[in-house]
């Protein structure tokens, strides 16, 4: 039994990698969840095709979670189904688990860990590392946490089942985003003068001038993130357009 459930969990883990594949505006990851749960449901309804059809249909409704933490829900649901928890409870669980898995994952991965890894990669590139080392550092560091989250989530969901909320509340995941803010702020700050030096160098502008401009703008951007982001993209488009037109007119 233990060996069987180990194999089952591995299959759930692998299927979780594709949970986003059919993301859509109606059910979001709904079909993805159904797809991921197939091994568990098929085992549960081994001899009963009608029952399998019914439970697949239930699990292909609305669902959404951070993809890396979707394993928490997948494992907990697999366990609840295998233990025969009634379907109304299962539905309520699904409805509630969407929220923490989205929120925890968004804050930790999208808002902290991914920017941190990509800025770190750019930082070491600017410090003079070869490009492939920088790319390697990004892929290795980012995916180490990515895969750890999937495995950790699967174990937690499998162990706690319906009560996984309490375990999530006490988990390090809740504190981690705030902790990561410090290195993220530091790395993003450190990239600014390095970038100014590198770009100033190619265009022959003095470092004091470029660093001053870059720091001033980076600090200004903290106050109004939305506006600064739009200005950045707008500046890029307008600036490049000016150059293309300038280039054509000289040519």
């Amino acid at each position: 039994m233990a060996a069987l459930s180990r194999a089952l969990r591995l299959r759930l883990l692998l299927r979780s990698l594709l949970v986003q594949a059919s993301w859509n505006y109606r059910t979001m990851q709904g079909a993805g969840l159904g797809f991921a749960l197939i091994p568990a449901l098929a085992r549960l309804c081994r001899d009963d095709r009608a029952e399998l059809a019914k439970s697949l249909r239930r699990h292909c409704g609305f669902f959404n979670a951070h993809p890396y933490l979707s394993t928490v829900a997948i494992a907990a649901l697999a366990r609840m189904e295998l233990e025969g928890v009634d379907s109304e409870q299962v539905e309520r669980f699904k409805r509630a688990i969407v929220s923490p898995l989205g929120s925890l994952g968004d804050r930790l991965v999208w808002a902290r860990w991914r920017p941190l890894c990509s800025l770190l990669a750019f930082f070491i590139f600017l410090m003079g590392a070869p490009w492939w080392v920088a790319v390697g550092v990004f892929l290795a560091s980012y995916n180490a946490v990515h895969l750890w989250l999937r495995v950790w989530g699967l174990r937690l969901g499998w162990r706690e089942g319906r009560e996984v909320g309490r375990a999530l509340m006490g988990s390090p995941l809740r504190r981690l985003p705030d902790r990561l803010t410090i290195p993220l702020a530091a790395v993003s700050g450190a990239v600014v003068p390095l970038l100014a030096l590198a770009l100033g160098g190619t265009a022959g502008i003095g470092p004091l001038f470029t660093i001053g401009i870059a720091l001033a703008l980076a600090i200004a951007g903290y106050g109004r993130p939305g506006l600064a982001g739009r200005l950045a993209v707008l500046g890029l488009l307008v600036g490049s357009l000016a150059f293309v037109i300038l280039g054509i007119s000289i040519w």
Binding site: L199, I205, T210, A214, A220
Partner: peptide, 27 residues
Amino acid sequence: VAVPARAGTVAALVILSVVSLGLGVDV
């Protein structure tokens, strides 16, 4: 297309401004 040498300076400053603004946004 050949762009006057001074334009390179301007381009570098534009990129620098854009990226710095973007970096301020991120945290």
